Amino acid sequence: MHIKRFDDAQPYVAPNHFGCHGLRLQGFEAGGPTNQWIGFSQFLPQGGAGPDATPFEKVYVVLEGEMTVIIDGVETVLHRYDSCTIPAHEVRKLENRSNHTAKMLVVIPYPPEAKP
């Protein structure tokens, strides 16, 4: 078992994100997961990401607040404990349209060049 305390999580900067503070909860470390990493994203009001896509799928789980996910012009609001899977190469945009910080878990496989 590999335990990592929240107080030990290190920040990371996610490309094409704004008004967002990311912490790496698991991954990219000895003894951690071997096929994916887990991020904790905190989006300030009016913060977001994209539009962009990745060559691998992602899973988002909203823990607090709400996030609007926009794909092909279709807007879906995810609320507390809602989740979604974004397939590889699907262009998405994320927006926190509320006046509250939105907190979200992100599960992403390692890029081939970064596998531990």
Rank of each mutant, 00 (worst) to 15 (best):
E95G: 07
L105H: 00
K93R: 13
R24H: 01
Y81H: 14
T101H: 10
H79A: 13
T54Q: 10
V74S: 09
V77K: 12
V74P: 02
D82E: 13
P45M: 09
P15Q: 10
L25Q: 06
S41C: 10
S98Q: 07
N99Y: 08
L78E: 02
E29R: 10
E29G: 08
H17F: 10
T68L: 06
L25V: 01
C84L: 14
P55V: 03
L63A: 05
P33R: 08
F18H: 15
A88G: 06
P87L: 00
M104V: 15
P111N: 04
V13S: 09
A9T: 06
N16P: 03
H79T: 13
T54G: 12
V59C: 12
A114K: 13
K4P: 02
E57Q: 15
E64H: 14
P109I: 08
E95H: 11
V62T: 04
R80K: 15
F43D: 02
T34M: 06
D82F: 06
F40S: 08
N99K: 12
Y60M: 07
K93C: 12
A49E: 08
P87N: 04
V91E: 14
R5H: 15
R92A: 11
H100G: 07
C84I: 15
C20N: 14
D52C: 06
Y12E: 12
L63D: 01
V13N: 10
A102V: 06
M67I: 15
I86P: 00
R80T: 13
F28D: 03
E113T: 07
H100P: 04
H89N: 13
K103G: 02
H89P: 03
G22R: 04
P51A: 08
I38P: 01
A9I: 01
I70Y: 05
L63P: 00
K103F: 00
V69Q: 02
V69P: 05
D82G: 05
A53L: 08
S98Y: 05
T54D: 10
E29M: 08
P111S: 12
R5L: 15
G31T: 00
E66I: 02
T68F: 02
C20E: 14
V106I: 15
T76A: 07
L94E: 03
G32N: 02
P11T: 10
P87W: 02
G31P: 02
Y60G: 07
H79K: 13
H79Y: 11
G32V: 00
T54V: 11
H89K: 10
V13H: 07
A88E: 09
L105A: 01
V91F: 03
